[in-house]
Design a protein around this nucleic acid. Sequence first.
DNA 1: CCAGGCCATAGTGTCGACACTGGAATACCA
DNA 2: TGGTATTCCAGTGTCGACACTATGGCCTGG
Lengths: 235, 235
Amino acid sequence: MISGETVPGKIEAKSLVDAVTERLEAAIIAGELTSGERVREQVLAAEYGISRGPLREAIRRLEGRRLLERIANKGVRVVDLSPRRLDELLKVREALEGMACRLAAERITPDEVAKLRELLTEHGSSSEVQSGEGYYQQSGDFDFHFRIAKASDNEFLISMITGDLYDLLRVYRYKSSTMTGRATRALEEHHAILDALDAGDPDRAEAAMRVHISNARIHAGLAMAKAQQDEDAAD
Amino acid sequence: MISGETVPGKIEAKSLVDAVTERLEAAIIAGELTSGERVREQVLAAEYGISRGPLREAIRRLEGRRLLERIANKGVRVVDLSPRRLDELLKVREALEGMACRLAAERITPDEVAKLRELLTEHGSSSEVQSGEGYYQQSGDFDFHFRIAKASDNEFLISMITGDLYDLLRVYRYKSSTMTGRATRALEEHHAILDALDAGDPDRAEAAMRVHISNARIHAGLAMAKAQQDEDAAD
DNA sequence: CCAGGCCATAGTGTCGACACTGGAATACCA
DNA sequence: TGGTATTCCAGTGTCGACACTATGGCCTGG
């Protein structure tokens, strides 16, 4: 449900539409607007302290980015995220990040490699990783992937991965992590990826990344199936 | 109310925004709005016979799909398509369609394969292909790729390829085809792809598709560089 | 008591008007 | 005359009002 009490983030920056878009995006990612939930324009507009015009434009933008869906004369909903769709998403991610990793291997600097290595070492020593769960680790995982995508130096690819794909994936965050329960394994895979990057071997880099994401996909599929079972059992 | 006057491209379907979005998209693809061209809202709105509200919403949607860019308080432009960006685009395409082809190989039906084979045979006997140029061939190429993408049975992937990527690529159409001058070669590559699909070999199918698109990318790069030279020389 | 249609209402769809911004042409001053 | 300040205009940004559509409750007739 939506907490009606606070208005912690009123809008008054550059373009209202830009600001509102970010805020909406953040709300979706943070789970304030849950998947499949219907959104009422007037309510949101009032909440953000703006009129419906800019809000509708912001909605349209997110519509174009597949975060929101509109049914004519009925309203707007946050995208519906079925297990099947997550599977689809992760296959696309495999393709995209595989390519990003390949390109990164061709042009990444030793400096960047060192930073990534540091990041992984940090993760490895983190107690949270060892216990196999944790919020920080999740964001750390994103960070690792994020940097590699950036290193591809392909603007379009970067914006597709970090702009579109990650937003969608984050919507799943609180539902099912793709890493929980396989943290150490994932860390190993990260190291394998980094080794390939370090060696400047595009083929190996792409392959390593694809294995990593493919494993995450399979794991997520199992996890969601299990969660579904538990839910059914609980009812 | 909207006057009943019939103007070549007036809108009066379901939701104005939907209709206008399609029309705008078509205009961009058809080259009526050229790359980099500035677009004035009032003019367009008048042209389509609607008010600025829905038009702006349509623009926002295409903005989210990267076909249009907006600079605050300045206006809207059709995306700027540099040779570098085409190169980036085609790398993404390689990754995405490679994956689509892999998935297609796993589940394509003999029936579909037969249809694709027919399509290629038709292309091969076309005189246009033999001369190495031609409009039909270009759309035929899209058709081939389109069907394979569909066969992947991954809705998200399909919408990314056919919804986003192809639109963007089409903007380049009249500037530089990725096929002209290598029609027979491309046809061979198409056959190689189809053979792999027919054999149900995902690895080979993906590899074949990637080689095909990679070649197209390299070819397009050379073609654009040459066009640039010619242009410079002409000045 | 139930089925079917009518009406009230909430919410989306569209519009025209007004406010604000950036840029260009012009006027002004040294 | 050249450079700068000023004014004006085209165009974008935002808003509130009105029109239309869908949905749920209510009323009526069987």
